[in-house]
Amino acid sequence: MSLHLLELEDVHTKLTLKTGVVRAVDGVSFHVDAGETLGIVGESGSGKSMTALSIMRLLPRSGRIDSGAIRFKGRELTGLSEDEMEEIRGTEMAMIFQDPMTSLNPVYRTGWQVGEPLQIHRGIDVRAALAAAIAMFKKVGIPEAEKRVAQYPHVFSGGMSQRAMIAMGLTTSPSLLIADEPTTALDVTIQAQILDLLRTLNRDSGMATILITHNLGVVAGICDRVIVMYAGRVVEQGRTEDVFAHPEHPYTWSLLHSIPRLDADDREPLKVIEGSPPDMMGLPSGCKFQPRCPFAVERCAKDEPELRDVRGHLARCWVTQAGTSLNGSVDAG
């Protein structure tokens, strides 16, 4: 077995809230290889962001990694001290967030913020960091970089802010970029530009990317492989084209069917997933998706399925594991 860039093994992350303990990440395993783009898909509360924050060790105060292993370049991260993690964050791993407008510090100039990782990790002075920031602004396509670095974040649009965030993440040429819903807060046209930028940077630098999204369309355009999460678990995992061509978990199947399609018959009603997202405080027994599943059989309510190979990729479903195909496969679009 070759060495993966990042490897998660049976990671459990718990959130201790006033109302109870939530197993936000419940036994997640996957890997990312150098240069590859991995998509993590799921609705809010599925544990996809908590998985990312567990990797970065940026969990909220209530969160804690309970068990499992997170190996990055062969190094076990879960046992590292806060100081050691600070060395890795911002140098080898960077992260950008959902809302770029609130992710930049309002009282500092953008250029200073973008160059800051170099000041922290490479010990270079403010002037050199600013020069690097200007170069990065140009690289991520921010026009008039020399002028823009001197501005405060409030004059930046959402798209510009996200470009600045990406520039900030990339100043130290990390080998892994985690993008948590990087386009959700942006206008549709800007979304496409940011995704293009991420794809270009990824291709040019050989950096691996984890792209977290609730939007399968985003995954289709950019990711080599995809992981689908539901209720803190991985329910399906495989090459993007395989998963899109023949989803083997009813949740993925439903997600694909709920994407509005331009070529669809107008008279066909838009499909939505029945039921509501799972209550993480009181998950059902058996398969967690079973109460909303159109394919559920008797067994689904009793035992929880394992993640097993079904026709070439992994899925956590009794029905497909038993050989049934979810009828009507869907194109990636």
Binding site: E86, R89, F97, T102, S103, Y108
Partner: peptide, 26 residues
């Protein structure tokens, strides 16, 4: 609790820098 504090931590800023440079001025 602001997002930009998480950004500062994601950069690998030590907590002193996070508190005294990123948070205190705000």
């Amino acid at each position: 609790n602001q997002d930009y504090i998480r950004t500062a931590r994601a950069k690998g800023a030590p907590w002193r820098r996070v508190v005294f440079i990123h948070a205190l001025k705000n």
